[in-house]
Design a protein around this nucleic acid. Structure first.
Length: 637
RNA sequence: GCCGAUGUAGCUCAGCCGGUAGAGCAACUGAUUCGUAAUCAGUAGGUCACCAGUUCGAUUCUGGUCAUCGGCUCCA
């Protein structure tokens, strides 16, 4: 029997049944086979060693492609597990997938792995690579596989097989050398295909990601198609370290987190506070343009109100409480309660809706110690929070308007983001019907706006489903910033109503939403995004005046006063140092413009700006520089 | 909260197999008055995270606490 194979270039060739994918690809293009780690056959990815049994469209999967890298890294994780078991007898294997920038493998082992062990493991891995063991796939009945892994003492693998759906009768295993692993595949043809890898870190991880389970040891590593790509990636990691917001926060004197004050509590220094002020000021204006009203509620509210809202039952562990005059107060972890009370302060007509209450609301949440992280994860933070109360009919257009707002804001800062729709979690309040309605409202607004999104099952807030906007920082970590949450429950619990056109009472719907999310976190992301070199409109210091000698100070002082007078954030640097030294200092502080002031400038009434990128703009009248900076701010440059 | 690592001057880091500590940069003082990424000299700076224990003696060893870092879980 012969089969017909179609290549990517649409050419076709006939082979006898059972020919391997590698033979077919090699016959089509030797070079393509050289760089391939797997094959795509009729859309599915398979081993190069797999046999083709029917007519097929075939395509090589290159090691450097996204899918190829994933397969390569998965294979490297097998080799690492093999090496770990060779070096550390008794280590049990669990799972070892490829992830975004590499791979990991989780082990159970009596001793702790240290960074020093990496060398031993890598050395053994290199031997395995040099041996060029073929990866051999074998399929067997699940009972047989279970017996095999039980006999090897691999309890976790036994559990994995045990938990497979009942209708799975055959499982696949992969062998390379004398190592056997339960695996769906596909894998690279042989260990010799591995050209570049590195182990990066070791950390704890719960078996199956559940904190009730045993803590395993996870070794992270990465691999690439060639050494150069690996080098480039490692350099990128170094670069990312340099723009870590915690480091820049100190170097640029923006903020501190102090043990004496408490973990997760940010203290803003003048420059950091200036940055924050600029962002908040901009936000207030943007909200006023969009029909929001500014409001403000108290920091603590009586515990009974938190019971009424459901926070006490569902959010208590994350809340701080305080006792005053035998009254218990909850320190607010969210801003909604006051906003509910504002709504309730008078009878509302359908003509009043939608009402959009905006508050830069500071909240406290008791976050677990292990999750605190610079500005990104803190215990006190300020949300650019708003609650929109509207009729069900208005829901769709309100959600669309928020999505537009988010898009506009992200555009200003040049962030990319992804959208997720999070549905009802395990612990939640409200009826199924309301959840259904709320989820549909969010989903249809996304669809109407043709925003692509992924569904995140069970990740909603306890009172309603949400749309999350996740932006990416310099380390490619995703951060949840903007979110829109649809809530039928709180209006119910607070018995909110409006009088409709029919003269009857109706229940409004509430949207909770933030645009930047937490100002602290957003600033952290911003710092890394710009590597501390903020655009002029955001820079805490926009220009610094550098005098050549002391005799230029009086003139420089008048320039400074003029700049400050026009609202430009100018700083004086009149120290008795050489110009080169001062430029270096200003450069390291990443100030957008350095204004050099010497004899020439003093005589002509000019300044000579030097841009942060080293470009000398030449002498210009002070007024010209002012106009220049003002224009940049206007354009948000 | 869990696993692991770490905590020495403002910062980056040495050091001590137990005998109370150093370097570079920063800071301060003086000299120098200088044109686009580091002028020279001097001075000062530390309860070695905190609290116990072992010891004649602890920064060093042991235990606990706090915090930080890398992850897990959770989240704006």
């Amino acid at each position: 029997m012969d089969i017909k194979i179609t290549f990517p270039d649409k050419n076709e060739r006939v082979y006898s049944t059972g020919v391997t994918a590698a033979e077919v690809i090699g016959g089509w293009d030797k070079n393509a086979l050289e760089h391939a780690v797997a094959a795509k056959v009729n859309g599915g990815t398979v081993d190069l060693t797999s046999h083709l049994m029917e007519n097929a469209v075939i395509e090589p999967v290159a090691a450097s492609s996204k899918e190829g890298l994933s397969i390569l890294r998965h294979s490297i994780s097998h080799v690492m597990a093999q090496a770990v078991q060779d070096v550390f007898r008794g280590a049990k294997v669990t799972i070892g997938p490829s992830i975004e920038d590499g791979f990991y493998y989780d082990f159970e082992y009596s001793e702790t792995f240290t960074l020093d062990d990496f060398e031993k493991i890598e050395t053994r891995m290199k031997e395995i690579v040099a041996s060029d063991y073929p990866f051999v796939r074998e399929e067997m009945p699940r009972e047989k596989a279970m017996a095999l892994f039980r006999q090897k003492g691999e309890d976790y693998k036994v559990e994995l097989i045990n938990d497979l759906p009942a209708d799975v009768s055959v499982v696949s295993i992969y062998k390379d050398g004398d190592y056997i692993d339960l695996c769906r595949g596909p894998h690279i043809p042989s260990t010799g295909k591995i050209k570049a890898f590195k182990l990066l870190s070791v950390a704890g991880a719960y078996w199956r990601g559940d904190e009730r389970n045993k803590m395993l040891q996870r070794i992270y590593g990465t691999g690439f198609a060639d050494r150069q790509a690996l080098e480039d990636y490692l350099n990128l990691l170094e670069e990312a370290k340099k723009r870590d917001h915690r480091r820049l926060g100190r170097e640029l004197d923006l903020f501190q987190v102090n043990d004496e004050a408490g973990a997760g509590l940010v203290i803003f220094h003048p420059k950091g506070m200036m940055l924050r002020y600029i962002i908040e000021d901009w936000e207030r204006k943007e909200h006023l343009k969009r029909g929001y009203d500014m409001v403000m509620g108290p920091q603590i509210l009586k515990v009974d109100l938190w019971k009424k809202s459901g926070h006490f039952d569902h959010y208590r562990d994350n809340m701080y409480f305080t006792e005053v005059d035998e009254q218990t107060y909850g320190i607010k972890p969210m801003n909604c309660l006051s906003h509910m009370l504002i709504y309730k302060s008078k009878i509302r007509s359908y003509r009043d809706l939608p009402l959009r209450y905006f508050e830069l609301g500071t909240v406290h949440r008791h976050e677990k110690t292990g999750v605190l992280h610079g500005l990104m994860r803190v215990r006190q933070f300020t949300q650019d929070d708003a609650h929109i109360l509207c009729t069900p009919d208005q829901l769709n257009s309100e959600i669309r308007a928020i999505a537009d707002f988010v898009n506009y804001a992200m555009g200003i800062f040049g962030f990319e983001y992804e959208v997720e729709l999070s549905t009802r979690p395990e612990h939640s309040i409200g009826s199924d019907a309301d959840w259904e309605l709320a989820t549909c409202a969010l989903e249809s607004a996304l669809k109407d706006n043709s925003i692509s999104y992924e569904v995140n099952e069970g990740d909603g807030a306890f009172y309603g489903p949400k749309i999350d906007f996740k932006l990416k920082d310099a380390l490619k970590r995703k951060w949840q910033c903007a979110t829109i949450q649809c809530d039928f429950t709180l209006p119910e619990r607070f018995d909110l109503s409006y009088i409709g056109a029919d003269g009857e009472k109706h229940r409004p719907v509430m949207l909770h939403r933030v645009i930047l999310g937490a100002i602290e976190r957003f600033m952290g992301v911003l710092i890394e995004h710009y590597a501390g070199a903020f655009p002029v409109w955001l820079a805490p210091t926009q220009c610094v005046l550098l005098t050549v000698t002391d005799k230029h100070i009086p003139y420089a002082q008048t320039v400074h006063e003029r700049l400050i007078d026009t609202g430009i954030r100018s700083e004086k640097y009149f120290d008795n140092e050489k110009l080169g030294y001062k430029i270096r200092q200003a450069q390291m502080q990443k100030v957008p413009y350095m204004l050099v002031i010497g004899d020439k400038e003093m005589e002509a009434g000019t300044v000579s700006p030097r841009a942060r990128d080293g470009q000398n703009l030449g002498a210009m009248p002070v007024e010209q520089f002012i106009a220049f900076v003002q224009e940049m701010c206007e354009k948000k440059n």
